[in-house]
Write a protein that binds this DNA or RNA. Structure first.
Lengths: 343, 343
DNA sequence: CTGAAAGCGCTAACAT
DNA sequence: ATGTTAGCGCTTTCAG
């Protein structure tokens, strides 16, 4: 592969001129410019980005770590991030941690070696040491979703506790008493918060918190299916279930149907995330929405603020706080219940 | 950030020794080894991968280009690719082309600059020139899905024509005559092939090919919705629709339901891809399955064969040919029809 | 087992 | 407007 020296030689100019043609076109005479360009084409020269980044100490690359590429929620976030990165002239590396703390740490290690200019961590599982390790390298960091191990740092997050609370409260308000919860993987803080919201709503309304009504799923469709099956084996089945994400809610719906039960008549369901498919399942899913695309957008903007202003010096931190909202559809039985109440 | 020289100096050894400690541990005495390692830790030294790649002319990185990160089909492929890359010690860059030829070309340009060791293109839209451009750089290339502009080259592909054929044929066999087709974006060859299969089945059975029954969607849920709406406005509505992918099939189902029509009683649906959600919509979707994860696996294996054996010299090409299979569920009305026929 | 030094390809002063 | 050259941080001969 041709390099910049080959081009310079063939064009009869210095490497500096070739470099200028590529990076500062206005500082070079039109004639040489044109000629060098023609040689570049002739030689099929493609500048070596590694060398460039090395010389500039800048990769124009950021990385986004997400727990699961099969969850559309994260893909929405990714789109938001990519869109702003692209506008800024940055490339973004999408890394799938599969909810594994080790994979996450490994990726970060690799990304530091690659000298990415910034890092966005989604639903991070990192422990204190690992976070320290990142901070020591001077890589700009933004988190999506809180990680208890970073006290200071820029973060975009949704109030998951509130989300769990409003979901559960709504179920209570329309008359359900035996409300179960299919929790997401508990190693994720957001799931602990959703559960806390669930319990808070229960307590506030003097409803008992029954351990048997709380079962953990693996965040995927199958996990919701399995968890629901477990719930359905209880002698005293729940009347409603608050599920920690839509994917699991889909699985739960499938499980409930497979037992010949109806939704919401026999069991009501509320999900979390409001991914596109949630409006397409039968019955349409009542769910707590969070603005995924916007979360991506905002986190990327935050990141570039820091990168460009160089104020990632442990000084300026921003927290962007998003409100979840309940999206009432069919699966919670809202209509039926309200009709009942007023009749 | 500390570099290798800082470490060498502090440890009182040469940079070569530090490099050896990291890359050829067995060629260095245990004593120095240990000491150097301690200094590395103390200084928080992280080797610069850019410099390393530059020196070695090897990035240990491959890239996978896909048309849409919101389509689970591609995410399954991505998992397959990542799994084998990871085992080989490679990182994989996931690039979302959003079905844009320009974005695809731009990504490739960037990836060549970054000197990735290999490239996997999924449902590529590249034209002859662009393909030539890649071949001129010495980057190993594997395609998932045929691109008519590459005559020679390694490729993993599904027989989409056959897929379209078996889907349509099945509808014909269970008694439908007015069969419509919601095609995917026609700039993608696979969609042309699916449609060809559809037409072939129709012709073979002396059924007319009615242009009004063929409408193009944008490959996403919404596209399927819109296309179905169009079909439903026809005075003579179709009895069945073969939809070019599951996502659009979901949209079509939604559209049909929203008109108060039943599936499959009023209109039958067959999709394509067999993504996980297709078994969870109501009614469960009959669809043509293709082994996405395996496609990712195989394409990556092919790529590494070439990378490691260096036989990407325009010589050795492999084509891996996958058979689609019909997965019969509820949406095509198979049961009802068979019952009818035998009664 | 270890060190010295050349080189990977590029950029940016500094000169001219 | 253009050329010369010293790095950027690493790996790897080649010597010892």
């Amino acid at each position: 592969m041709a390099n910049i020296r080959d081009v310079a030689k063939k064009a009869g100019v210095s490497v500096a001129t070739v470099s200028r043609v590529l990076n500062h076109p206005n500082t070079v005479s039109p004639t040489t410019m044109e000629y060098v360009l023609s040689v570049i084409k002739e030689l099929n020269y493609t500048p070596n980005g590694l060398a460039r980044s090395l010389a500039l100490n800048k990769t124009n690359t950021i990385a986004l770590l997400i727990p699961n590429i099969l969850n559309p929620l994260y893909m929405e976030i990714a789109k938001g991030v990519e869109d702003v990165a692209h506008k800024k002239g940055y490339n973004t590396l999408l890394c799938n941690t599969e909810e594994s703390q080790k994979k996450e740490a490994d990726y970060i290690d690799m990304l530091i070696k690659r000298r990415v200019d910034g890092l966005i961590l989604t639903a991070s599982l990192l422990n204190k040491e690992e976070i320290q390790q990142i901070k020591k390298q001077d890589i700009t960091l933004v988190m999506i979703g809180k990680n208890k191990n970073v006290k200071h740092g820029s973060v975009v997050f949704t109030d998951y506790m509130l989300g769990g609370y409003i979901a559960t409260k709504h179920l209570i308000e329309i008359g359900y008493k035996r409300i179960a919860h299919i929790s997401g993987a508990v190693h994720q803080i957001e799931n602990q918060e959703k559960r806390a919201g669930y319990e808070k709503a229960l307590k506030e309304n003097n409803l008992p918190i029954d351990k048997r009504y709380i079962v953990e799923g693996n965040n995927e469709i199958e996990g919701g299916y399995l968890a629901a099956k477990k719930l359905l084996q209880l002698k005293c089945k729940p009347e409603a279930i608050f599920v920690a994400n839509d994917l699991m809610a889909f699985g739960a719906i499938d499980a409930i149907k497979s037992e010949g039960l109806r939704i919401p008549e026999d069991i009501a369901i509320v999900g979390f995330d409001n991914i596109e498919m949630s409006a397409l399942v039968e019955p349409k899913l009542t769910t707590v929405s969070q603005p995924a695309y916007k979360m991506g957008l905002l986190s990327a903007r935050l990141l570039f603020d820091h990168i460009e202003n160089g104020d990632d010096e442990e000084h300026v931190h921003q927290e962007i706080f998003l409100q979840p909202k309940l999206k009432v559809r069919k699966s919670c039985g809202h209509e039926e219940r309200v009709r009942e109440i007023f009749s």
